[in-house]
Design a protein around this nucleic acid. Structure first.
Lengths: 166, 166
DNA sequence: GCCAGGTAGTTACATTTGTTACCAATAAGC
DNA sequence: GCTTATTGGTAACAAATGTAACTACCTGGC
C-alpha cells in the first residue's frame, strides 16, 4: 500500500546470537530430559538434582545444595519436601546449626539414584552422538567460562537493576 | 546413632553432566540478558525475539515466528499483544489467510530494534570475552547439533502433542 | 545475660508459564 | 452451497516459579 515493509538492515542474526542459541538448545534438551525423568521415575529436575548431589557429595544442608546447583532455596526446599514425602531422603538435625537440616539419602533414595544414573548417562550419550570427546570437553570448558562471565556481568548490572527509567 | 553409611559410588558427576551444565549456564546467561532487556527497554525475552525476527526476516505470521524460535504459539501471541499495545508493531490482515495477522514492525519498532541490537551484541561480546572466534563457531555448531539430537530423541520418546511440522 | 543484626528454611502470595477449550476462518467432501 | 475437519489465534483456567514476609536460630556487641 503506502509504505512497503521497510526491511531495515539486519544488525543481528538471531540464529547466530549466542544467548539465543544457548537458551533454545538448553530448553529443548532440558525438556527432553525432564520429561524422561518425570515419566520414568516421577522425578522433577530439581528433585533429581538433589538426589544426584547427595549421592555424589554425601549429606549436606539445603543451602549448600542450592549454592552448588544455583537453585533457589525455595526450589530446593520444595524438592526436599517432595523427596522426603516419598521417603527417598531423610532430614536429620544438624548438630552444628539447629536451623538447618542435613539431607541424607535413604536406602530407597540410593537405589533410585542407582537406577536413574545409568538412564541419565545413556540419554546424555544419545544426545551427544556425533560429538567427539575432545569437542565435548571443549564444550564443557566453554560453558563453564560462559557461566563465569555471566556471573561477572550479572553482578555488574545488579547494582542498579531498576529505578531509573532510562 | 551411626546409620547406614551413605557412600554410594558416584556413578555420575553432575558437574560434568552435559544437560545439567547446559541448563545451568543457559539459565544464568538468559537471566542476565533478560534483566538487561527488561531494565533498559521494558522488553521481555519473547518480545525482543519477535522484534528481532521481524527486523531480520520481515513481516510474517505469528505461527511462522513460533516455528522459527520454537516458542509456543501462546507465548508469541502474548508478546505480539504486548508489543502492539506499545505501538511497536502492527497487525495487518493477511490477504492469504484471514485468520492470521501479518506482524509488521512500526517505525517505532524499527527504531527500538536499532537501539537494542547494539546493546545485545555488546552484552554478547562481554559474555564471550576470553573465547576465541574459532571456539565460538565450534560452540555454535555443537549447540545446533545438540538441538537436532534433542529433537530426535524428544520425538522418539514423547507422545509429541506439538505440531512442529517440517 | 540481652538485644541488634543476619542466616536457614518455610509459608503465603503474586507473577509467569503452560494447557485446555474455544472462536473464526479455511479447506475438503458431498 | 452446506457440513465436517483443520488451522491461526485468543481466552480462561491450572500448574509451576519467583518474591516477600515470617519463624526459628545463630552471632556479635554491650
Amino acid at each position: 500500500m503506502t509504505t512497503p515493509p521497510p526491511s531495515p538492515p539486519p544488525l543481528l542474526r538471531l540464529e547466530d546470537f549466542v544467548p539465543y542459541r544457548l537458551s533454545v538448545t538448553a530448553n529443548l534438551v532440558s525438556d527432553v530430559i525432564a520429561s524422561a525423568y518425570e515419566a520414568r521415575f516421577g522425578l522433577k529436575v530439581a528433585e533429581w538434582r538433589l538426589v544426584a548431589v547427595l549421592a555424589e557429595d554425601g549429606p549436606q544442608t539445603q543451602q549448600s545444595i542450592g549454592q552448588r546447583t544455583r537453585m533457589d532455596k525455595v526450589t530446593v526446599s520444595r524438592a526436599a519436601i517432595a523427596l522426603c514425602d516419598r521417603a527417598l531422603l531423610e532430614r536429620r538435625d544438624n548438630p552444628q546449626d539447629k536451623r538447618s537440616h542435613l539431607l541424607v539419602l535413604t536406602e530407597a533414595g540410593i537405589r533410585l539414584y542407582e537406577e536413574v544414573a545409568p538412564v541419565a548417562l545413556s540419554l546424555e550419550k544419545e544426545l551427544l552422538s556425533g560429538i567427539g570427546p575432545a569437542e565435548m570437553d571443549a564444550l564443557m570448558a566453554m560453558l563453564k567460562r560462559l557461566e563465569q562471565a555471566a556471573l561477572t556481568v550479572g553482578t555488574g548490572l545488579m547494582a542498579d537493576a531498576d529505578g531509573d527509567g532510562n
